[in-house]
Design a protein around this nucleic acid. Sequence first.
DNA 1: CCGATCAAGTTACAATTGTAACCATTGATT
DNA 2: AATCAATGGTTACAATTGTAACTTGATCGG
Lengths: 153, 153
Amino acid sequence: MNKAYAPLILEQFLPFRLSRLSESISLKFAQHYKREYGMNRPEWRALAALGQLGMLTSTQICQHSNMHKTKVSRAVQSLSQRGWLLRKRDDRDRRIEYLQLTPMGKRRYTKLVALAHQFQSEIESTMSSSELSTVNKALRILEKLEINGTSTQ
Amino acid sequence: MNKAYAPLILEQFLPFRLSRLSESISLKFAQHYKREYGMNRPEWRALAALGQLGMLTSTQICQHSNMHKTKVSRAVQSLSQRGWLLRKRDDRDRRIEYLQLTPMGKRRYTKLVALAHQFQSEIESTMSSSELSTVNKALRILEKLEINGTSTQ
DNA sequence: CCGATCAAGTTACAATTGTAACCATTGATT
DNA sequence: AATCAATGGTTACAATTGTAACTTGATCGG
């Protein structure tokens, strides 16, 4: 087979490798909360951010999870309709809305956290501890890239 | 702030880290071929797979790049309409279609490959060689996970 | 105080995507 | 041969998403 051009080896191309990995892993995890709670990815992410960090604005959720603001807006709307979060206007700056989980939201969150921990340990149990530390080191390196955070999505 | 539940630390949760990384890097790279060639992600991926591997069926592209078959179907259709690939039926099994880049398709591919190499070396230039090797080692570890390939998307 | 400008968040609309149903073809079974 | 299940690939339709425009409110310079 004659190829008169230098090919790109996809298996060595970072965006390709990352998105292939991310898609299969995220999809796998999504099956859990999709089936059991009827949630989608933006909803789960917003819930997770609020559960971990307590009280946030939509913009802060955007920045933290690197999601487009319309995604966040819709996720927040949906979580609020389910009664899982409360919105509270800032009195000083009435454009800003603080978001916080309700007790019901916290209960859902707790259940999903259990799922997440289980999922993570299933994955980690297939790695040796040195492999695990390599993976963590690599992720930290990649997360330092200036690319991250530059995008408004 | 009283949180009466054990939180999940998103910054340590693999699906979260991977998708945040993947989305920002892929988006960054996508800007190039989107602006210059009006291509979307599935189109670029199909082109890249064909450019590298020569002649493939749609199903093979699905497996290789972990994309849903409808995505691939549409990407192939679009590439074919631009005259960048040719479809050829298998005579033995007339369900199967072999796909192959045309000379014009190969020219586009070559240009995009140059972009890709440049993109990759920009990223790699910000890492030391030991960091780079850590990243590659980690990606190989993650790619061995049995999760990959289990999904039909 | 008034207009200009900018930020937070929403929404309308178009494009992209996933699910499920569908053809067309093949292979296996009877 | 006739039927049935399985496979490669497409398509209709609904859900999800991104872009751009918008609303509301704050700020800043005159």
